[in-house]
């Protein structure tokens, strides 16, 4: 904490204090919370906040990852190592298992992605484990539908979000009342921006997966985005592969997450790059949001993250 004589607090301290408060509310009011941990930067920050909120006790809930089977190896390795370090229970909900069980049907064609299929896997896992509160690392600055969502976001029996009928949310009082079968998505990082996340990673000296830093990678171009050359990404003859120095601004499914050309090799360089960028992280790197103007809202209504 950076204290000043007039009792002001820095913006990161304010955001951290708010996030810790939210986490403790959930731990106190719900029976079976879990924290979605993908190995991406937001969920890494969220995990650090959870460590802080309950220290010196261990984090009182399990972690869950919805694994599409098309994730970056570096991220999966990081996920497992981090969970082991914390001694946390990690639940992996597998999209492949949902496909094998016939719960969802794999998309075909060049643009096939398991992104949308994740929703079914996620909702099935929430039901199977009886989770009543699920922490997500989404931020309101990411996307215009997310900008509208409450910190405690109510989901009905079908996991659906109803943006026209959200519960009022005043002061720091969060309504945790639900019936059996319903759940709450909780977003402790709602008020953080991408830059706040990076400033925090720097301040706290938090380790992140290597693919966030500039590295050489074999990529090809599609829709102005650089996609990784990988067996899981369908590539056409007209999409030649080349080597480039890139990094990832977001980490998601390989089939819909693009890299950006960058030489930023340290957190400081990344912060300088983000501060100067003129394109949002999802705009730069996420094919899933480009589908239509309300792509995110539509997915969220169905129960997406």
């Amino acid at each position: 904490m950076t204290l000043q004589a007039d009792y002001t607090t820095s913006q990161l301290d304010v955001l951290e204090a708010e996030a810790i408060h939210i986490m403790r509310e959930v731990a106190a009011e719900f029976e079976r919370p879990c924290l979605l941990f993908s190995g991406g930067k937001d969920s890494i920050v969220m995990l650090r906040i959870a460590e802080k909120a309950f220290w010196p006790a261990p984090i009182p809930f399990p972690l869950m990852h919805v694994d599409t089977g098309h994730n970056f190896d570096e991220v999966i390795e990081f996920r497992d190592r981090r969970a082991a370090e914390l001694g946390a229970r990690l639940v992996v909900a597998s999209v492949q298992a949902s496909i094998d069980a016939g719960r969802v049907v794999e998309e075909t064609g060049r643009r096939a992605s398991r992104n949308r299929l994740q929703t079914t896997t996620l909702l099935d896992a929430i039901e199977e484990h009886g989770f009543d509160a699920v922490f997500g690392g989404a931020r309101r600055d990411e996307e215009k539908a997310r900008a509208k969502e409450r910190v405690f976001s109510f989901r009905d029996d079908f996991g659906q979000w109803d943006p026209k009928n959200q519960r009022p949310e005043l002061w720091n009082l969060y309504n945790a009342k639900i019936r059996k079968g319903e759940h709450i998505r909780v977003f402790p990082l709602s008020n953080w921006t991408e830059l706040d996340i990076w400033d925090y990673i720097r301040r706290e000296g938090i380790e992140i997966p290597s693919i966030y830093y500039a590295h050489k990678r074999r990529v090809f171009e599609r829709d102005g985005m650089l996609l990784a050359d990988s067996p899981v990404v369908q590539r056409g003859e007209d999409e030649p592969v080349f080597e480039a120095v890139v990094r990832y601004r977001t980490v998601g499914d390989m089939t819909c997450t693009g890299a950006v050309q960058s030489t930023a090799a340290t957190v400081e360089e990344i912060i300088a790059e983000i501060a100067a960028t003129r394109i949002t992280e999802r705009g730069a790197t996420r094919a899933d949001d480009r589908a239509s103007e309300a792509a995110m809202e539509d997915r969220k209504r169905e129960g997406y993250f």
């Binding site: 309101r140 900008a147 509208k148 943006p163 959200q166 921006t193």
Partner: peptide
């Protein structure tokens, strides 16, 4: 219809 939260510095 509902509050939008936006951020700038």
């Amino acid at each position: 219809i509902d509050v939008a939260y936006r951020y700038f510095a």
